Amino acid sequence: MKTEQGLLRISIAVTIVLAGVGILFGILSGSFAIVFDGVYALTDAAMTVVALLVSNLIASSATGSGKGRLVKHFTMGFWHLEPMVLGLNGILLTGAAIYALINAIGSIMEGGRPLNFDQAIIYAVVTIIVTVAMAIVATRANRTLKSDFVALDAKAWMMSAGLTSALLVAFVVGYFIQGTAHEWLSPYIDPVALALVCLVIIPIPAGTIRQALADILLVTPGDLKSHVDAVARTVVERHGFLSHRAYVARVGRGRQIELFFIVPEDFPPRKLQEWDDIRDEIGIAIGDEGPDRWLTIAFTTDPEWAD
């Protein structure tokens, strides 16, 4: 529970068990909403497995413990895989919700479907307890881990808890209208609840998909670029350089920074150690030193090398 990989493993195990129980209860109770909840969870679990593999690759690459042909073919690390997985996860979950919404609308138009509310309520209560507990555990752990994968996993558990709570309310209403004048509404409760749940789910991964696309397309993060430019301008003034060029990108948890300093042609010669000292000064000023920062600093008298 103290590492990203350990937390994701526990999440995968709990998700698979919960998904299996959901599909079983959905079939027994006749609720397509519960079946969808189980299938949705299995999809999320499958993507979490991929996220765990990528997380292990990134961790092993950052610590230098990675071995074999895979690391040999990815000498610049595995950060670029993280936004791909996050984006694919969001797209798959959104697609599953859209498909379920279409099925729910079709079921409503056909007159709904019968549902065993007793079994549906039992499933909803158990699921809410488990999902709330997992959301709390993941959120607390991520205060230290600060992982995008764990953050997405915690968000998924919170989503699941909220949506299952909505299903529980619908099932309880359906249970209490049995034997009343409103019993004719019973067949519509499951598809209507599913449709409402899907309408809530569909836009939720949009932020994750948008950020993942930005990372994949190497869109420059404005705040990081401003910080790097401010540091570089200070260095230019302090050491008498002419100007600088900064290239910045966020790729998953990785920060890729390339800095070029244009030095006057008549600049007095310096030892290599002195240039390295300037690099150390720049690295400290930029901050966030660690395995997830890729910092390249070059000095040249020819601006074409920097443009």
Rank of each mutant, 00 (worst) to 15 (best):
V173I: 15
F117I: 00
V130E: 10
P205S: 04
S165D: 00
A195G: 15
P203F: 11
V219Q: 10
P221H: 02
L213K: 03
L196T: 05
I122N: 06
M134T: 03
I128W: 12
I136L: 15
L145M: 10
M159H: 00
V235H: 02
I202G: 06
A181C: 03
T208P: 01
T164L: 08
P203Y: 11
A206E: 06
L224N: 01
S186K: 14
A161V: 06
A141C: 05
L168V: 04
K225G: 01
G222R: 13
A195R: 14
L152K: 11
T208E: 07
V192D: 07
M158Y: 13
V231Y: 01
S147E: 05
Y175K: 14
G207L: 10
A206M: 13
I209E: 04
F117Y: 09
Y188F: 15
V236M: 04
I202Y: 04
R210Q: 11
L218C: 03
V197K: 13
V200I: 15
P203E: 11
W157C: 05
G174K: 04
I121S: 07
W184H: 12
G162W: 06
W157Y: 10
D118Q: 09
L145W: 00
A193P: 06
V150Y: 02
I216D: 03
I128V: 15
L145E: 05
S226A: 15
V236F: 08
M158H: 10
V200R: 10
P187F: 11
I177S: 08
Y123I: 08
D153I: 09
H182N: 12
Y123V: 10
H182K: 08
L163A: 04
I201C: 10
A214C: 05
A156P: 04
T139H: 01
L196Y: 00
V236S: 01
I201T: 14
I209W: 02
R210N: 12
D148G: 08
G179D: 11
L196Q: 02
R140S: 05
A170W: 11
A181K: 13
V132T: 11
P191G: 02
D118N: 11
G174A: 08
E183S: 15
